[in-house]
Amino acid sequence: MATQRTEPARYDRFERTLEEYGVGVRRVRPAAVRETIESLRVGSAVGTPLDIEGAALPESVTTGPTTAELEAAETGVTSASLAIAEYGSVVLRATAEGSEPISLFNDRHVVVLREGDIVPDMASAFEWFGEELRETRDSAIIATGPSATADMGALVQGAHGPKEVEVIVVS
């Protein structure tokens, strides 16, 4: 799935849907990933290594953090395995590098993904889930926009999870 070329309409759709959720999105070349993350970083940052050719984390992002570093961080940077254009969702796979806590405990979540990993719709995403999860028995989150609640009388972002989500699509 990672190797297929995404038609331009798919990215546009993804971008439009993300914007409806108030999620910032930008498309960059692999070489520009480092500076883009740096520009999106707020406070100290923790992250997981990026598995995208030519893309790297800035030095300011700590990988393999301790619990103290996780707690102190305001920004978490992780990659997404897949994105769903129709819903503006990113698929966050729980990994041994701590993707799940790192994408969850910070106020700002920066997500990095390959443009070729954007699938058009939920049906395609579930074909992928079926094959991947049955085989690996891994876990994954379909995350759409920031954490939210309406339990206190009005919609508030950042109930338990991140208040802000920023997406970097690597073309």
């Binding site: 819903y87 729980a94 990994t95 799940e100 690996t136 876990s139 989150i141 379909i142 759409t144 920031p146």
Partner: peptide
Amino acid sequence: DITSYVSLFTPPINSPSV
């Protein structure tokens, strides 16, 4: 249209506890 998180957990999850 969709809630913020649809979690597909396959427990015990292959992810470090904190």
